[in-house]
Design a protein around this nucleic acid. Structure first.
Lengths: 209, 209
DNA sequence: TGCTTAAACTAGCGGCGTAAGTTTTTACAC
DNA sequence: GTGTAAAAACTTACGCCGCTAGTTTAAGCA
């Protein structure tokens, strides 16, 4: 086949297919040849639309971050804005866990990521936090959100109970997987509560840097 | 060459070389052929000592986790134990950043990781925290520690100032990289302080579940 | 109409993890 | 001592990977 009358590929279609493939089968399954097959096309054709594979994966990451709701900073107290944003971010990452390593590792040049940083940092600055502290708080929230999304704590303990024979306190650790939601969500919510409440206390006491 | 009089490889030597290679040039540089070259050997020879590449990388991760000081839970209050352990863990991950994605993503079947979980969870249980809460606290600490180690927040903003033209609050974000330590360490320490202090408050008020 | 560019193709390079089979040495049973 | 099995290196090779180069044909425009 040479150039078709109607283009078979667009950047948008490629990103959509890549996102679906990563969601369904993981980052490793998303090879150029496989992705092309999914789109009914030969592997190298993708290079007419993206220069490298990394650009495609980056675009998927960008599309995921763009789903986070940053409108919550408008019309809400900084505390409530932070909480709602964190929950939205957390929810989006939980819905697309396979892309999280890309988000957590890579640099932040993506527009949606910058827009998010602007919203978070801006809200904190406008609330009166010092620049240094606002930066710390933004970084800290990122640590909690990406840290909780990148690997389930509950699933980290395998089903084989014999593994835990030598560790008396872990003798029921293999049961954690069955309560994955309660464990992982509970830990995230606890962290969010503790961080925002104690920041709120400091703020109310006038300690804003 | 057939079987040499003195074995050229041992599991230990392989893990050491892999750790050095990962530290120096990153996970991607650590291919079987490259690692073998580093050891003066042909690629497939490694399979006489490890079944897969994943086993080698896992052994490197295990060796890194084993460096974390879990003795601090003995002879210290749970608060102080938690703080000292977290700092040790954080320090070890900062010293070997390239292996962090493996630790953060993979399951926790490694002995050193289990021993660490046992120490943390045991200390919290013995202090009187409920099993569910102790699990949450352990997970939460892991989120903070791996989240902060997997990607620098400060380095996430590239040097090109023009990127930030559209984001008024970020107009100096490119300067963050120069203060990387203050930013990343400051955020981690802030998180640690906030979490442990607020857990301590709850504990002192008798809220232990 | 003719020229340039775009978007598909095929062929192929070097690298990857790993399987299979070979050679030689070591370790141990008789 | 000798025969045998296992161990630890080797070579070769398979199928995948990201990506490059060159080809073909259609689209868009002067």
């Amino acid at each position: 086949m040479a150039r078709p009358r109607q283009a078979l590929l667009t950047r948008e279609r490629i990103v959509e297919a890549a996102a679906a493939l990563i969601d369904a089968e993981g980052l490793d399954a998303c090879s150029m040849r496989r992705l092309a097959t999914e789109l009914g096309v030969q592997g190298p054709s993708l290079y007419n639309h993206f220069a490298t594979k990394a650009e495609i994966v980056d675009a998927v990451a960008e599309a995921v971050v763009a789903q986070v709701d940053i409108s919550v900073f408008r019309g809400n107290d900084w505390r409530e804005g932070l909480r709602l944003w964190a929950k939205s971010y957390h929810g989006v990452l939980c819905a697309h866990p396979n892309i999280v390593p890309v988000l957590a590792t890579g640099p932040g040049r993506r527009p949606a990521g910058l827009a998010m940083a602007e919203a978070v940092y801006g809200a904190l600055i406008e609330a009166g936090w010092s620049r240094a502290r606002a930066t710390h708080i933004g970084a800290l929230m990122r640590y909690l959100i990406t840290g909780s999304a990148i690997g389930s704590f509950a699933l980290g303990f395998e089903a084989d109970p014999e593994l835990y024979d030598r560790f008396p306190h872990l003798h029921r650790a293999h049961e954690l997987a069955a309560h994955r939601d309660a464990v992982d969500e509970g830990a995230f919510e606890l962290g969010l509560d503790l961080l925002i409440n104690s920041l709120s206390d400091r703020y109310d006491q006038g300690v804003r840097r």
